[in-house]
Simulated assay, not measured.
Amino acid sequence: MNELRNDWSREEIAEIYNSPVLDLMYRAATVHRQYHESGEVQVCTLLSVKTGGCPEDCAYCPQAARYHTDVKVHKLLPTEEVIQKALEARESGSTRFCMGAAWREVRDNRDFDRVLDMVRGVSSLGMEVCCTLGMLTDEQAKKLKDAGLYAYNHNLDTSEEHYEEIISTRTYDDRLDTLENVRNAEISVCSGGIIGMGEGHSDRIGMLHTLATLPEHPESVPVNALVPVEGTPLEKQPRVSVWEMVRMIATARIIMPKAMVRLSAGRVRMNLEEQALCFMAGANSIFAGDKLLTTPNPEVVQDKEMFQVLNLKPRKAFKDGPAVKFEQIPQQ
């Protein structure tokens, strides 16, 4: 059985990543079946609860205030509206609901108090509730945990070496510190990255190496293909091929076998066959809904058709996680 390890070397990961693609997929599929049910895919929904106006300069992001994009800035959504969106997501088959706010970091103010209320509300629906709010202190992570937060997303984005080409407004260590604060609060860690931002294969290997050598592997690893947005510095980047996604997903599956590997942004540009290759390579989660924060995503109807054609079955919430207390699920 493929063992759980946190002592992978870059050379070992490079050897896996660069192996013949069909051999790589076979090995990843074998590991996947050791730790997960074949054909089981978790459906997640991602909602932007506060959009645009971010002071950071992430080169891929249309929500940065300094770039001229079509993103409309809106303040934090009303709590009731967010809970309603979560209910609709649950009705359409999602078991994980993630709320994103375009902040550099969480501040201890009324907006954070409202996010804590949103977390309590979504948790009461029996869904895995996740947030991505920027940098977090130890104390803020504990408050989110106490409110019922199940997971926190904070992507590394790319390798430490390539990072300064993409972002200058916070450091790689800032990101790692937030992941440590999330882990210390006993919140499930969600962290991955984006490919197609001008990085080399060594950068992709480097990012995977950082994730796989954390004291504990992230429970969730999103693999995103850049969706170039007009007005951002990366607007002219060429599309990532499905084989590049397959290499990332398969390598992540082999070196972090228990993680949920999430086929995330970029899926809108993939046909059904390309997505099937990603599932074969070890992806076992998708994001549903017509948008991922501000970028387009396949519609729910298309995804339901894909589940039928590929005989995929939806994964339940909290399947392998710790017992989570939540209130009685409201009757519809």
Rank of each mutant, 00 (worst) to 15 (best):
P298V: 14
I249N: 05
N271K: 07
T178A: 03
R10F: 13
P233K: 00
T51W: 03
R183Y: 02
F112N: 12
V324M: 11
S188R: 10
A265C: 04
N184Q: 15
T30E: 14
S48N: 15
Y172C: 04
Q42S: 13
R66A: 09
V122D: 00
A102T: 13
G200E: 14
E165A: 12
E244C: 00
Q34A: 10
V221S: 02
I167M: 08
G266V: 04
L211Y: 10
K75N: 12
H74V: 00
S94D: 12
G134V: 08
L125P: 07
G134W: 05
A259R: 05
Q331D: 13
W243D: 13
R204I: 11
H68Y: 10
D177G: 00
Y60I: 10
H74G: 00
L144F: 07
A212L: 04
P20N: 13
K145C: 11
S92P: 00
A89L: 13
Q328H: 08
S168T: 11
I195Q: 08
L176H: 07
A28W: 01
R267A: 00
A147G: 10
M135R: 14
K316G: 03
T132Q: 09
K75A: 14
A86I: 11
P233E: 00
V223F: 02
V129N: 00
H32C: 00
E56C: 15
L149P: 00
I195G: 13
I195R: 09
H36Q: 09
E216R: 08
R5E: 08
N155M: 09
D23F: 06
E305V: 14
L125W: 09
Q63N: 14
Y26D: 08
I255R: 07
L136M: 15
G266S: 07
R104Q: 15
A65P: 01
A59K: 15
S159T: 02
Q331L: 13
A102S: 15
L179E: 06
E3P: 14
F279K: 04
G289W: 12
D174E: 06
S220R: 05
R96P: 06
E180Y: 11
